[in-house]
Amino acid sequence: MPKIILRSPDGNLHTVDARVGASVMETAVKHGVPGIVAECGGALSCATCHVYVSGSCLERTGTAEDFEDEMLDDAAAERRPNSRLSCQIRMSDELDGLEVEIAPEQ
């Protein structure tokens, strides 16, 4: 199972196992990682699962496109070049060890 390492807004690190095909958001919520609200459950409608992908991982996840890109413009926390909505990052074996920081406000 690919692992995800999330830094929550309180500074704690959480390492969770993801199913291949599950999103980073789903995996974090299912394990009760604090900081991701995910009101819409992954429908790309609320911008409350905002994360910053660590620099070395961004090449593997890719950057936000189209609708996600527009939603991120209006997210509660600062938009950065490595901003993603974590519901739109699907886990694969290639993403094993993915590191993300959860945005301080959702």
């Binding site: 095909g21 789903e26 919520v29 299912k30 394990h31 009760g32 459950g41």
Partner: peptide
């Protein structure tokens, strides 16, 4: 995928 929380939660 539909489940809101993992069982161990």
């Amino acid at each position: 995928n539909l489940l809101l929380r993992a069982n161990n939660f």
